[in-house]
Amino acid sequence: MILVDADACPVKGEIQEIALRRGISAVFVAATYLRLPDHPLFKMFVAGDAFDAADDAIAQVARPGTVTITADILLAERVIKAGGAALDPRGREYTQATIGDSVATRDLMAELRPGMMGQQGGQSSGPPPFGPADRAAFKNGLDRILTRIARTGA
C-alpha cells in the first residue's frame, strides 16, 4: 500500500500512474477533500485540519510493507519507526541510517532560520523548482522501493 501525505504533494499523478501499473492501492491523506480519479485502487482519507491530523492518520497505519510519500521529515521518522518505508517527492528514500541526520539537519535549520530571515528581510528562497528530473527520480525511487517490498516484504 502507498500512503500519501497529500496536502502539498507534487507527485500525485506519478503515484497514481505507478499504483495503476502495479495494481497497488494508494491512500491519499489530507486535511480536506482532494479530487481523485474514480478507481478502486485510489482512496481519499480526510484527516481534518487539526495540527498534524494527516501525519497522525498516516503514522497509525504505517507498517512493514507500506510506503509513505512525504516531504515531512518528522512523519518519515515515525513511519520508519513503525517499520514502513518513506520516500520524499524528489525520490530520496529516508532510511534507518539517514533519518537521524535528516531530523538533526531539519532541527538545526529551524533554529537558524529566524536569524537568517531577519538578515534577509524575512524572505526565504525555499527549495529549488520541481522539474522533470525530480519527477523521474521520484518514479524510479518509488519503483525501487515497491520492487524491494515485493521481494522481501519490507
Rank of each mutant, 00 (worst) to 15 (best):
M1V: 00
L3V: 01
L3P: 03
V4E: 15
D5C: 03
D5L: 04
D5S: 04
D7G: 04
V11I: 06
K12C: 05
G13W: 07
G13T: 01
Q16Y: 06
E17L: 05
I18R: 15
I18P: 11
I18S: 13
L20V: 00
R22F: 04
G23T: 02
I24H: 15
S25N: 10
S25E: 14
F28Q: 13
A31L: 03
T32Q: 15
L34G: 04
R35Q: 13
D38E: 13
F42Q: 08
K43F: 04
V46S: 10
A47D: 08
A50I: 01
A50N: 10
F51W: 03
F51Q: 10
D52K: 07
D52V: 00
D52F: 05
D52S: 05
A53L: 05
A53G: 05
D55C: 02
D55S: 03
D56F: 04
I58W: 15
I58Q: 14
Q60A: 08
A62I: 02
R63I: 00
R63K: 11
T66D: 14
V67M: 14
I69S: 12
I69T: 03
I69W: 14
I69F: 11
T70S: 15
T70F: 12
D72A: 03
L74M: 08
V79S: 14
I80T: 04
I80F: 13
A85D: 12
A86C: 07
A86V: 02
R90S: 07
G91A: 06
R92E: 14
Y94N: 09
Q96E: 14
Q96Y: 10
D101G: 07
D101Q: 12
V103T: 06
D107L: 09
L108Q: 13
E111H: 13
P114W: 13
G115F: 14
G115A: 11
M117F: 08
Q119E: 12
Q119F: 10
S124E: 12
P129I: 01
P129A: 08
G131A: 05
P132D: 15
D134F: 02
A136H: 10
A137H: 09
K139P: 01
G141H: 08
L142C: 03
L142P: 04
D143E: 12
R144K: 11
I145F: 11
L146M: 10
T147E: 15
R148M: 04
A150R: 12
G153F: 03
A154N: 09
